[in-house]
Write a protein that binds this DNA or RNA. Structure first.
Lengths: 117, 117
DNA sequence: ACTTCAGTCAACCATTTGGGTGAATAATGC
DNA sequence: GCATTATTCACCCAAATGGTTGACTGAAGT
């Protein structure tokens, strides 16, 4: 059985994705497939070190996976954690919709004064 | 015609949502409907000021809206910006899927050597 | 052995962030 | 007019962030 459950840190995912450089890295990886750190860095006007740090943030959030073959670190995008965000959004939307439903019902029911405590 | 287009700042939305306190505020607002700043703050072990700041961050990202009726500021959750995130995720996933498709096709076609440049 | 290449680690710096306090603003209630 | 209520504004502070450079580790090529 697959260990279903949000094993991902929602905050970490969102924070990782909130940086434009890191989003660009993710896009690049999705388009081009697994890349080495150096290859990624070369496409940015930024030091290799900074890119390496960004990758570590992404890795930490689970948005990227590292396959250390040979002396090269192949970085691969990982879409799974995104679903944790999807799920949180869905949850938020549903409780919001639920409240609206309750509100409507209350309005139809004249016993209630229509206020939401 | 509705001004469709991502008028939202993806980075701002993600960053705003990356903080646990702010996520809690959003959840609270979704459950309870519009609330005053003070009401929100009372539910946290945190100064009113800090909560006020958090709300401003959310407001800035478009995730909440302020209806300044009377002297009270009614804060209301706004789900629209979330779709900007949805869309970005969808885009990322689709370019990723596209690349995989291309890869498969290449593998079926023996003229290609199977490598992805 | 020596050099080069791929990356990380460590230290540093400026800026942002998340928190706090106290004063300021503005409307209401007396 | 004065106190109360609701909220923001202006600072202060510690910690985190995004970037830099320079030293280090480890594998490959010569």
């Amino acid at each position: 059985m697959v260990e279903r459950e949000s094993r991902y840190d929602l905050g970490a995912i969102l924070k990782a994705a909130s940086d434009p450089t890191r989003r660009a890295i993710l896009t690049m990886l999705a388009q081009q497939g697994p890349l080495r750190v150096t290859d990624i860095a070369r496409r940015f006007e930024m030091s290799l070190n900074s890119v390496s740090k960004h990758i570590k943030v992404l890795e930490n959030a689970g948005l990227v996976q590292r396959r250390t073959e040979w002396r090269e670190h192949l970085i691969e995008v990982q879409m799974d954690p995104l679903s944790a965000v999807d799920e949180w959004f869905a949850g938020l939307r549903s409780i919001w919709a639920l409240r609206l439903d309750a509100l409507e019902t209350a309005l139809e029911d004249p016993e209630d004064d229509g206020t939401v405590p």
